[in-house]
Design a protein around this nucleic acid. Structure first.
Lengths: 367, 367
DNA sequence: TTGTATGCGTTATCAT
DNA sequence: ATGATAACGCATACAA
């Protein structure tokens, strides 16, 4: 029998990595010493450490993470709660989250809520059951954050991504949606537009009441910030009924199409269209096209969020650009810092957003 | 003191849910009985069960998932390994995976590889360390799947998504990329195109050698299937050097732009462009636009995968459409079935893909 | 039907 | 510096 690497234990027909106990035995030390050696903590004599490390390598030792978790009561997993991972905005956010998490030695479990509070509550509960180390959440509700408060009380820090929640004190990271939208509106208004319509999906899956009695205080999401900038900009130039052309519709391209079609069929249709995000913009552009309108001569179009395809439409779509990937990265940075320092005042991180004027914005028609 | 629900134990400043032991004590039964009652297995007398359930409710008992995992040696987590979650293709796949997983009581941890084998290997190792129940992988390498074989040997089933790997026997789900691309080529060839260029990112992050000596056998990915359909279609109509206009470039829009620009600058430029996927298409379209070419009069363009924005370009982009979301869903279905029945022959699931002819395809110029 | 006892693999405490 | 041992919370074989 040679000293060739012994194969890790084989049990049943599965290949189970060697345990710390086996490493310790092979190295001729106790489990405690072996643990210290592989864990790199406490004090271990050089020769002992070497023997342990050698044994570990020979046995292809891999620490059993779930056993470790049992013992420590937590994991190195970050829960990510978003509306829809297939939405490019969240796709890029998540990529940022993932990259930052990995750098910090964490991995991520992703859950979609479809903007439904019920779904989000269940998701958060499941994640807490799994003992995630922390949560990055783009909450579905602006008014109900009890489940998130519970997470915090369970010692699981929460970082709010892109959105805010009433009555929840937590670290937050979002971009300057107000400023970005304001820039876009400035361009539109400067070009003479007064009848500017706004199509937004801010209202959740079921849509919101469309009447003018909409509670502005409820609009504390990023989409709400954009809407506020929109309304304020209009008011500043003396538009009497700024909400006249404001349309809130369910999430999705088709709903945006319908809303836009209705807008364009109005007796006095808008001369410019503001799509709250890139998915909405898809519906808006299709409706404009189907109405036979040419952009920007007959109607101007802008979007409140960048789209990968903004430069391949004809004309190229003017949009607000925000650092979406960075939004994700920073949210994890904040989370990890909070993990390291649970106390301390919560922080808001506001990333810049700017309007990029491409070719879909033109002068308002004289009519 | 009333009989009001007792608050779960408070330790330190964290709110830790009650343990099974506490539930058992409160119900006046042993841990084993309590476990059977809350777990819904074994046999428990009705009154005992009721007392346990009541106690559990009062204490807001939540099973400690990680302790359970330690005991059972596995988790209810599925590892998802893709190149880039911010790529719409993987975004939609992942959404399908997530939905199907949740339905089956699993959650997902997502890892990006950026098409790098090293990264994928590390990811798989980490996931195995976490004791994921199974893996859904869109592998970066077509030739090296050792790490995936190791996963299988560890008893962790692997489902290959959208791509295949040499020497790996596993369940696979992909769409009929060959058929879809063939339909697209039929349209192009039928319209008289012979100088059809193909721009693909099949080659991984660093790009591949572009010379004609490209090993076709290595092209066993979905992108490879499309390329094969492309080459075959050209050969069938007597094109002598079908590879003349084939361009493999690194992943990304910019690389596609460059490749296309070069193609268009050729002494005898192509009359049609086949973009392997939607990200590539972005670069292709921009290059076409910058070259001042009008689609489809001067040049035709098709994409091998659907894009959300295909209908908002002018003209609307003709693409192959495949059920991407369903790809994800089915991969999990296969995985769960494999989990239930580890033995049994591996299965291939091929979903249909079809060419949707929109407005970017026209007759080949006479010249 | 119920309870006792033990194991899972790790981390951590406390003597030695 | 090291080893024996407890503890984490749950699952389960086996005895009662």
């Amino acid at each position: 029998m040679s000293t060739a690497p012994e194969p890790p234990t084989e049990r049943g027909d599965r290949w189970v990595p060697a345990t710390l106990t086996e490493v310790a035995e092979r190295a001729g030390v106790s489990r405690a010493t072996a643990a210290r050696a592989v864990g790199g903590y406490g004090s271990v004599s050089a020769p002992a450490r070497e023997r342990v490390l050698a044994a570990a390598a020979e046995l292809k030792y891999r620490p059993n993470v779930i056993a470790r978790n049992t013992r420590t009561g937590t994991t190195t997993t970050i829960g990510v709660v978003v509306a829809d991972i297939s939405n490019p905005f969240f796709g890029h956010c998540t990529r940022g989250i993932s990259d930052a998490a990995r750098t910090g030695g964490f991995d991520i479990v992703v859950v979609n809520t479809d903007e439904e509070l019920q779904s989000e509550r269940a998701a958060v509960q499941l994640l807490l059951d799994q003992r995630v180390a922390g949560l990055v959440v783009a909450p579905a509700s602006r008014t109900d954050g009890r489940h998130l408060v519970e997470a915090q009380e369970a010692g699981v820090p929460v970082v709010l991504l892109d959105r805010r929640v009433k009555g929840l004190t937590a670290d937050r990271v979002f971009s300057d949606n107000y400023g970005g939208a304001e820039e876009a509106m400035r361009r539109l208004v400067g070009a003479g537009h007064r009848r500017v319509a706004y199509v937004s999906s801010a209202a959740g899956p079921q849509g919101a009441s469309n009447d003018a009695e909409l509670d502005l205080d409820d609009l504390i999401t990023s989409a709400g910030d954009r809407i506020r900038a929109y309304l304020t900009s209009l008011e500043e130039v003396g538009v009497r009924q700024p909400r006249e052309y404001l349309r809130l519709c369910p999430y999705g391209e088709d709903a945006a199409y319908t809303a836009t079609a209705e807008l364009l069929a109005l007796p006095v249709p808008p001369s410019a269209l503001f799509a709250s995000d890139s998915v909405i913009a898809l519906g808006v552009l299709r409706a404009v096209h189907d109405a036979g309108l040419v952009v920007p001569d007959q109607i101007s179009v802008v979007a409140g969020d960048e789209a990968s395809w903004a430069r391949v439409t004809t004309p190229a779509l003017s949009t607000v650009v925000q650092p979406v990937y960075e939004l994700g990265r920073q949210s994890v940075r904040l989370l990890l810092e909070r993990l390291a320092e649970p106390a301390g005042a919560p922080r808001d991180l506001v990333l810049p957003a700017h309007f990029v004027d491409r070719d879909s914005t033109g002068e308002a028609p004289r009519t």
